[in-house]
Amino acid sequence: MVDFGYKIAKDRQIDFDKNDRSIAQYVRKHEPTFNLCISCGTCAATCTARQFTDFSLRKYILLLRRGENKEVIENIHKCMLCGKCQLVCPMGVNTRGVIYRIMEMCI
C-alpha cells in the first residue's frame, strides 16, 4: 500500500438504498404523528436545548427518515423534555412521544 498523502474522500451523498431506517420505522409504528412533520422548524426555534447546543428535532426527524442515524444517536439525549416543542407544533406532532421513542432505540 502506498501513502499518497490523501485518501479517497468519503461520499457525502445519502445512500438511501443502503441506509438503516429501522429507527424511523420503529418510531413511525409507535408514534404515527412522526409522519406529520413538515420540517417547518417551529420546534427548533422554541427549543431550550437548541439555543445552547446543536440539538434540532426538526433535523433529527428528517435524518432518521433518511437513515442518517449517527448524529441523532449522539445528540438525542440533549433534549430536556420540557415540552415547548409540542406546544408550538402546527401539525400536532406528539414531539415528546417521538423523542421517547427515538431514545428507546438509541439506548
Binding site: 451523498q13 445519502i14 438511501f16 438504498d17 426538526r58 433518511r66 442518517e68
Partner: peptide
C-alpha cells in the same frame, strides 16, 4: 432539508 445530496 438535510442539506445533502441523496440517491435512491
Amino acid at each position: 432539508l438535510a442539506g445533502k445530496p441523496l440517491k435512491m
